[in-house]
Design a protein around this nucleic acid. Structure first.
Lengths: 110, 110
DNA sequence: CTAATATTTCAATAATTCATGATATATGGA
DNA sequence: TCCATATATCATGAATTATTGAAATATTAG
């Protein structure tokens, strides 16, 4: 992950529809969702959603795969991991004991 | 953490100078850095940096404290934790085994 | 009180980003 | 082939965001 990719990822997540999409896809997990389903779920026009999905795609935050006429989208957890790794690079100055608590309790409490 | 706060945090990190500042403060750890030091380290004008610091501040990503005439800034790791928690909310659909790997290996490899 | 230092705030211009309508592409079925 | 469905692309105007110079605020020292 380089700085430019990180900037585009944060930019992607800084817009309401795209943040909604990403969180929706995180919740959808491995099942993912079709582009049309996403647009309908969030009540956003088809072309607007398409543009937003392509922003998330080029930011490395979602993946997709064609499924007949439709296209299924998934959250790209590897991309997210890379982003967070970049953000927290050298966070502990050689002292992992300072670093651990920083990311503890992030996981969902399910 | 609500959606509006998350949007402002991601928006704050989507600008190069502010991303640099946050990563610098993450590396600085508990020592933090004075506003002037940050501006000098990143070669950004003082008033521009002040505006960017105030964006990070109101996004909950940094904290500050007055130190004589100067002001010392720190990364706000609680704010970051809240942001990530919001982003990954309900990520595993009741199955923590799917959730764990998502945040593994984020910690720095120090 | 006056001067110097450190930082913030303000107003204006410049640059970027967003949603939309119209159109184009791709796939599947008759 | 022709049509319908699903999604993507393009051009434009509207809205948001960023940087700058100038001025203001806060703190400390003399």
């Amino acid at each position: 992950m380089d700085k430019l990719s990180a900037l585009s990822a944060f930019g992607a997540l800084s817009q309401e529809t795209r943040l909604d999409v990403f969180r929706l896809l995180i919740r959808a997990g491995e099942a993912g969702m079709l582009a049309g389903e996403i647009a309908e779920a969030l009540d956003v026009r088809q072309n607007t959603m398409s543009a937003n999905l392509s922003v998330l795609l080029s930011a490395g935050l979602v993946k997709n795969t064609r499924e007949g006429r439709a296209i299924r989208y998934f959250a790209d957890t590897d991309g997210l991991r890379g982003l967070l790794g970049f953000l927290l690079q050298d966070c502990c100055g050689g002292r992992p004991d300072l670093c651990g608590p920083l990311i503890e309790d992030i996981a969902c409490k399910c």
